[in-house]
Amino acid sequence: MKHRSFLARLGAFAVGIALFGAACSSSTEPAAVEAGADPTATVTTTDDTTADPVATDGHQHQHGEMLEVTWSPVPTVTLDVSADPISGWNIHAVPTGHRFAPEHASTEPIDGEGHMHLYVDGVKVARLYGEWFHLPALEPGDHELRVELSANNHSVLAVDGTMIDATTTVTETAGELVPMDDVNDMDDMDDMDDMDGTDDMGDVGDMSATQEIVITVAGGSVTGGGRQDVDLGTELTVRVVSDTADEVHVHGYDLFAELVPDMASEIVFVAELPGVWEIELENSGLALAEIVVS
């Protein structure tokens, strides 16, 4: 009898260990989930803080100076680009270990600070003092966007001769409006490349009713939100302007739009799912509105 109890315990323990092991191996999560998904980007990103040699060669003769990083933590940068719902591209470049120091720009380098440079197709178009930047619409076709970390004196930061940068390719389409509502599901992220720029409004038909909800967020308070009745089948435009960078999320319909400070973002969709749905800022969790679709 005694040993059976021991076996029972051993069995339970073994199951526990096996499950624990299975779970631990799961700690590397899919990047898509972490990145929270930018459903709009037509993008293939290579976040190469330690870039491949070919790229390095290409980059090196575009600028003269490089500054070898001798401090730690070694800075890195990631680049995330999404199509603006109205026009152009919202660029989100996030450095780590690299403080924005516009007050020291064009002066002596200081470890751990500086700014960033943005290149489009190898041409420097902007100096970045913050994570977000709006890039106006480009010529139709593919474009390479690159962000590099720069010291105060504009030297490019490098590790072992490889500059610290991140590159992304975007495809500008002929239309001005890139539909947010092509994307119903985060799982569709892989299909982003075929976004063709046709908008969904054709589905609705000209006879449908339309409705617009305009929401302004300033200092954490929301105006124009609250509870809004929407008739089933209405083509609804949700326009949000916020003083913070965030992401608008229409629940249920699962539509997202990046928010750049003080720029309007729009989500246009047909209200075809009955129920009460929340519209919120995804990162701060701030509730913007509730649509009562019936």
Binding site: H251, G252, P274, G275, V276, W277, E278, V292
Partner: peptide
């Protein structure tokens, strides 16, 4: 007045 729950999970509220 009105009813949309907030129970642990879920994004949808029932219509009144």
């Amino acid at each position: 007045a009105g009813a949309a729950g907030a129970h642990g999970v879920g994004s949808r509220g029932d219509l009144p």
